[in-house]
Simulated assay, not measured.
Amino acid sequence: MVQHIILACSGFPELFAGKTEKTTRKPDEKIKDIESLFLNFSIKMDAPVFLIPEKKEYSKSTLNTKLQKIESELLDCAEKYDLTLICLDFQVPGFDTFTIYEWIDFALVHTQRHTHQLKNIFQYMNKL
Rank of each mutant, 00 (worst) to 15 (best):
I5L: 10
T111A: 09
K56I: 05
R113V: 07
K55N: 03
G18T: 00
P53E: 02
K44S: 06
K66S: 14
S61G: 07
F12Y: 15
Y124N: 13
N126P: 11
Q112L: 14
A107K: 03
K127A: 15
H4K: 12
L128R: 13
S36A: 00
K19C: 04
F122Q: 15
I70G: 05
Y124I: 15
T20W: 09
C9I: 03
S59A: 02
K127N: 15
G18H: 00
Q68M: 10
E57R: 06
V109E: 04
A47V: 09
I34Q: 02
D33C: 03
I31N: 06
V49L: 08
A107D: 05
K55D: 06
G94Y: 00
I104A: 05
L39G: 05
D28A: 11
S10L: 00
G18P: 01
K60M: 11
E102P: 05
E35T: 09
A17I: 13
I6G: 01
F16P: 04
K19M: 06
H116E: 09
F122W: 12
K55H: 04
K127Y: 13
Q123Y: 10
D82A: 04
S61R: 11
K127S: 15
F90T: 12
T115L: 13
D105K: 07
L118N: 07
I86R: 11
K80F: 07
D96E: 12
F90V: 15
L75N: 13
P13Q: 06
A8P: 02
I6C: 01
L7C: 04
K55T: 12
F90Q: 09
N64P: 05
S59Y: 04
N126H: 15
N64Q: 10
L7K: 12
S61Q: 15
E35Q: 11
R25T: 15
F95I: 05
M125V: 14
K30S: 10
G94M: 03
Q112S: 08
L128G: 12
K119R: 12
D96W: 01
L74H: 14
F98N: 00
G11T: 01
R113D: 07
L75G: 07
F106R: 02
E71R: 12
D28E: 09
I5K: 03
I5E: 04
